[in-house]
């Protein structure tokens, strides 16, 4: 009851977060997206556009809802029983929460890389071939081989693993595993790649490699990255969105966010006063 009131109040008084302006080349548009985990209101009225061919980073203190929002974009939240998503998320103008949308198809278009590298306990080859196999992307073995090789190449891993494609993917180093996971996501040829703190488990050298890779991938994919490192956001992204306590506080060009934040909270966070 109370919640409904809050919702209503919000709808009448809510302000658009700073810098949210309609853009024509939005790949993904979220409008008034709310997420509840049971009783907890984890994401509040987030309205955000994600532009095609750019890297958008989500920053904010722990528990601010940035990962939650990321997982809305390929409906990974569906796997959590207590999670309810409301509002609209459009991709290329299509509501991805529409009952007509098939979640399997959606996830083939929106790949995801997770915080902890999670290769399957299979060979390197089988890891990359997993997506193409389940979606039936390759007509024969040669095509599959080609997909595997190009994906590894794009992920910058080919040189390191080409002699041991049958070795288990779990035997690689942490950074290599994460690039394997990126290659695995690329193998499905998605349009968008979501990355949930992809470098938080990696050392600085592996992190640098991944960041370099993200920059290269930008040409062909729309990338959304959640990160705890403001330096990383500044280095890899063109646009940055700052979340706080489930709300989108500010979104804008990365340069502007880090040099001239409009909101006090953003300023406080990027200058390290809290978070």
């Amino acid at each position: 009851m109370e919640k409904a009131n809050v919702r209503e109040a919000r709808e009448t008084t809510s302000e658009t977060p700073e810098g949210t302006t309609a853009v024509t080349d939005a790949k993904i548009q979220a409008v008034r997206t709310n997420v509840h985990y049971g009783d907890k209101h984890a994401l509040k009225d987030v309205t955000l556009d994600i532009r095609a061919g750019e890297v958008t980073s989500f920053i904010g203190p722990s528990g601010c809802g940035k990962s939650t929002f990321l997982r809305c974009l390929n409906r990974m939240n569906d796997t959590i029983d207590s999670c309810r998503v409301s509002g609209t998320v459009r991709m290329d103008g299509e509501d991805i929460y529409d009952p007509k949308i098939d979640v399997v198809q959606l996830r083939a278009r929106v790949g995801m890389v997770f915080q902890k590298p999670n290769p399957f306990p299979k060979s390197i080859y089988d890891n990359i071939a997993y997506g193409p196999r389940i979606h039936g992307l390759a007509a024969n073995k040669d095509e599959l081989d080609e997909i595997v090789v190009t994906s590894l190449e794009k992920a910058g891993l080919l040189a390191e693993v080409k002699d041991r494609m049958e070795a288990p993917g779990t035997g690689l180093s942490g950074g290599q595993q994460q690039r394997l996971c990126i290659a695995r996501a690329i193998a499905v040829s998605p349009e968008v790649i979501l990355m949930d703190e992809p470098c938080s488990a990696l050392d600085p050298i592996a992190t640098a490699k991944i960041e370099e890779l993200i920059d290269e991938l930008r040409e062909n994919y729309t990338i959304v990255i959640v990160t705890h490192s403001m330096q990383q956001a500044a280095r890899v992204s063109q646009r940055t969105a700052f979340f706080h306590l489930g709300e989108l506080i500010e979104v804008g060009d990365t340069e502007q966010i880090f040099t001239n934040p409009r909101h006090k909270l953003t300023q406080g966070y990027i200058t390290g006063r809290f978070g």
Binding site: M76, T79, R107, A108, G111, M112, K116, N118
Partner: peptide, 22 residues
């Protein structure tokens, strides 16, 4: 581990594929 399930679902595996493959 849930990470394996997420990996499979994140790649667009159906629930059945996730169960039988992984």
């Amino acid at each position: 581990p849930p990470s394996i399930r997420e990996a499979a679902l994140g790649l667009g595996a159906s629930k059945m594929q996730m169960v039988t493959n992984d």
